[in-house]
Nucleic acid binder design. Structure first.
Length: 468
RNA sequence: GGCGACGUUGCCAAGUGGUUAAGGCAGGGGUCUGCAAAACCCCUAUUCGGCGGUCCGAAUCCGCCCGUCGCCUCCA
């Protein structure tokens, strides 16, 4: 399988380190391990659907690797101390930990609702201070960092590779307009590893005085601690390429002296709302909770997966509604009760399977993979209508939709207080229909439709549901 | 200014040198139904921002132009 590596700027054959070191060429190691690190959140507000896009993407990466026979070790950090968190906690007048705990819990509730697999390890920055201090200390000892007025900075001029991920060089960066020459910095691009705390800020003791970690160091410390010196996949949004991931490489490779820190860098394109990307700072966001109040998790996943993950995606209500309709079609097939007896297997199951795999093998071509599944669904419906047994193709469909993390469960309708009254009207209407009083029956149906209650007469009775 | 992307049917969105340009939604036709709805089936771009070029052949490669977006220490 091929994956696009931001570092090389091209698609590369994916080989896990575990396969390489064990000399495995074709399946000698039964379940080679893939070490995967995904950048997590800064918990001080509810996550928005741009986050959903990113985590759905890497959830599918993980599910597909597992489908292909890898054993994935998935680590995702929670950066629970930084400027925005401190500012928000102060504004609300609550302890830092109370704020971060609340939004971490809510974040994972959102992830669960989206059917995103939990990472195996979820380290928090504030619980990894000793490792962070250790890494910082070594970087100073090796000459890659220097303390200054209680802060510690990384010395970018000492790292000849600096800029290799984001394809920049120090000169062009310095030529940029937004660089501030921090007090005590040797070079304007030097970035902070350890920040001296100001009065009233949370702090930890360190050899350089009380302070807290800089933004990038926690990811280096955590991935070293939990995954080792070289990891296979590091994922995140495209907006993290610079400075975050660039700085992680600088820190990690300087610390270990080993290259590469990450074998494959994967970055998802950003979600746009209108003309701009969706982000906390622009305030143009829709939270995952808001989206899930109106749409199913499957619809959100289909919306995300019907595009190529590296390319920006534009959010619209219409697109999400279209995805919901598509989800309904797949659900319909998943709920089918096969009744046919004919076994004239007209469906090329291995063909669909290999088309799906070929699409996914090409840098997680979920759009193509989904298209294959819609084709399969159509075939299943056709054969089912013809009276053929579709048990096997149905199993293939649910197996493959599962790789994309779709549940295809029927949508849950929120309970309505008015339900007993609606039931009463519906049964009255049934009586009228039996008596062939169709004008009266249709009148009730029309009125209910106006009130947002949809009526469907099916062979097994009348069902109704509230339109969301 | 530097770096990186994108522009495909009414909408969203795949495809990146060669038979009929995926798929979803919308739209049209049909099956089912008392009628609807839902569901299902079938159909729906001679054309890929514009102009040149390379090639037997380009949406796909090259050049220029137009338009849009992202990053350049808040960010998935």
């Amino acid at each position: 399988m091929k994956v696009f590596n931001t570092l090389s700027g091209q698609k590369e054959e994916f080989i896990a380190q575990d396969e390489e070191t064990s000399g495995n060429v074709c399946g000698v190691v039964p379940y080679p391990e893939v070490k995967m690190y995904v950048c997590g959140i800064n918990p001080y507000a509810d996550s928005h659907i741009g986050h959903a896009l990113s985590y759905i993407t890497f959830d599918v990466v993980r599910r597909y690797l597992e489908f292909r026979g890898y054993k994935v070790k998935h680590v995702e950090n929670v950066t629970d101390v930084e400027d925005n968190i401190i500012a928000t906690a102060n504004r609300l007048g609550i302890p830092l930990r109370e704020l971060t705990e609340k939004y971490t819990v809510r974040y994972f509730e959102d992830m669960d609702a989206l059917n995103i697999l939990r990472p195996h390890i979820i380290p928090r920055a504030t619980e990894e201070i000793p490792k962070i201090i250790e890494v910082t200390k070594v970087l100073i000892d090796k000459g890659y960092a220097y303390p200054s007025r209680g802060d510690v900075y990384f010395r970018v001029t000492k790292d000849p590779d600096y800029g290799k991920l984001s394809k920049r060089n120090l000169e062009s960066m310095v030529a940029g307009i937004r660089i501030e020459l921090g007090e005590g910095k040797e070079h304007p691009m030097d970035f902070v590893l350890w920040k001296a705390s100001k009065p009233g800020e949370p702090s930890w003791d360190s050899p350089w005085g009380p302070g807290r970690p800089g933004w990038h160091i926690e990811c280096t410390a955590m991935s070293l601690k939990y995954l080792g010196e070289t990891i296979d996949i590091h994922g995140g949004g495209q907006d993290l390429v610079f400075p975050h991931h660039e700085n992680e490489i600088a820190q990690s490779e300087s610390f270990t002296g080993k290259k590469p820190f990450v074998r494959y860098w994967l970055h998802n394109g950003l979600l746009r709302l209108g003309e701009n990307k969706m982000s906390k700072s622009l305030g143009n966001l829709i939270t995952i909770r808001e989206a899930l109040a109106k749409h199913s998790a499957d619809a959100l996943r289909i919306f995300v997966l019907s595009s190529y993950y590296r390319v920006p995606l534009t959010f619209t209500e219409e697109a999400l509604e279209a995805a919901e309709k598509g989800a309904d079609r797949l659900r319909q097939v998943a709920q089918l009760k096969p009744h046919g007896e004919k076994t004239t297997g007209q469906i090329d199951i291995p063909g669909y399977h290999s088309k799906f795999v070929a699409a996914m093998d090409d840098d997680f071509g979920t759009a193509q993979a989904l298209a294959t599944l819609f084709d399969l669904a159509r075939d299943i419906n056709r054969l089912n209508d013809e009276g053929c047994d579709v048990t096997q193709p149905k199993l293939t469909l649910t197996e493959l939709t599962g790789v994309l993390g779709l549940t295809l469960k029927p949508r849950e309708e929120p309970p309505l207080e008015s339900a007993p009254f609606i039931e009463l009207l519906v049964s009255t209407r049934q009586e009228l229909r039996k008596a062939k009083q169709f004008q009266l029956a249709d009148g009730i149906r029309n009125k209910l439709t106006e009130l947002g209650i949809g009526i469907e007469d099916t062979p097994s009775g009348t069902v109704w549901k509230a339109k969301r």
